[in-house]
């Protein structure tokens, strides 16, 4: 039996060492060599100053084209929208912006049906995993995960668990790939108009929302100027009156929810296509100019 115990210990030691070495290798490559994610793009802007920074979910990524904003306002803007981002993600990104010394004159933060959510973006979750041990801010982003302990301490667990996004195939492909967000300063346009995905907004806004309050408090404590806005929805969206409840939650709120009514300008119920995004970016620029 003692021989068998020794045999098992050897196997477990190999497993642990392999996991440890792979963890170091993957973390080093994802942190230093791979440059494909939206978070990489944001991190790459360290020590830079922008006049306008746009934050929010895919409804910023696919709606705000900074090149149009720049050309119309003669200012410098950037799109820091992250797919599927919710208040918790915005709060984390705000803190990381300060950490990376990314400065902005005005922050434009998109808010809508995600207001009530306490969840996190599944995209930012994956983007930030390689950095979980790097920064206190990123560590605390994951602290509410059920398997936080394993994610943080167990070598390679975070990569195995998310193998479809952070696996060996993704790593190899990512090493060769360029950051698609660089091309249009964080904006990605959507093509076509498939007419599906009708959005139903919540009927009621939840009061005392923890992460929304955290965002507001953080902005106050850092003296950042922030304007909240809601990007256009297709007119068939249900419960659009939710936006009027949102409006009451913010001192500065721009409502673009019903700005665009042409179905052809929408990819789906809550995403504009590239053509629609162009129009919206122009309208947004006009609003900035008019309010100056």
């Amino acid at each position: 039996m003692s021989k068998f115990i020794l045999f098992i210990i050897k196997i477990l030691a190999i497993l642990f060492l392999a996991a440890l070495l792979l963890d170091v290798l993957y973390t080093s490559l994802y942190s230093n060599v791979v440059n494909t994610t939206k978070f990489d793009f944001i991190k790459n802007q360290h020590d830079k100053h922008f006049n306008y920074v746009f934050m929010g979910s895919s409804r910023v990524v696919n709606h705000i084209n900074p090149r149009i904003i720049d050309s119309m306002t003669n200012k410098k803007s950037i799109n820091f929208g992250v797919m599927d981002a919710k208040p918790k993600d915005i709060f984390t990104l705000l803190q990381l912006m300060d950490l990376y010394s990314i400065q902005s004159d005005t922050l434009f933060i998109q808010t809508d049906y995600y207001y009530n959510s306490r969840d996190k973006s599944k995209f930012l979750y994956v983007d930030l995993l390689p950095y979980i041990r790097d920064q206190r801010i990123i560590t605390s982003y994951f602290r509410d995960e059920k398997d936080f302990w394993s994610l943080y301490y167990f070598p390679f667990y975070r990569y195995s668990k998310n193998s479809s996004k952070l696996g060996v195939r993704e790593l190899v492909v990512s090493l060769k790939r360029k950051n698609i967000f660089e091309q249009d300063k964080g904006y990605i346009g959507l093509k076509g108009s498939d007419g599906k995905w009708q959005r139903e907004l919540p009927k009621k806004l939840k009061k005392n929302s923890f992460y929304n309050d955290s965002i507001k408090n953080y902005l106050n404590s850092t003296n950042n100027i922030a304007i909240f806005f809601t990007a256009p929805f297709r007119p068939d969206t249900k419960n659009l009156f939710f936006v009027s409840q949102l409006k009451k939650e913010y001192q500065m709120f721009w409502d673009f929810s019903m700005l665009i009514s042409d179905d052809k300008l929408f990819k789906n119920g809550y995403h504009l296509n590239d053509e629609g995004a162009q129009q919206f970016s122009q309208q947004f620029s006009n609003t900035i100019i008019s309010k100056q």
């Binding site: 196997i11 190999i14 497993l15 392999a18 792979l22 668990k161 193998s163 696996g167 060996v168």
Partner: peptide, 17 residues
């Protein structure tokens, strides 16, 4: 061979789905 199999399990295994 065992080491390679364990590395395959860690790196090529599907755990997300």
């Amino acid at each position: 061979k065992v080491t390679l199999a364990l590395i395959a399990l860690l790196t090529l295994g599907v755990y997300s789905d």
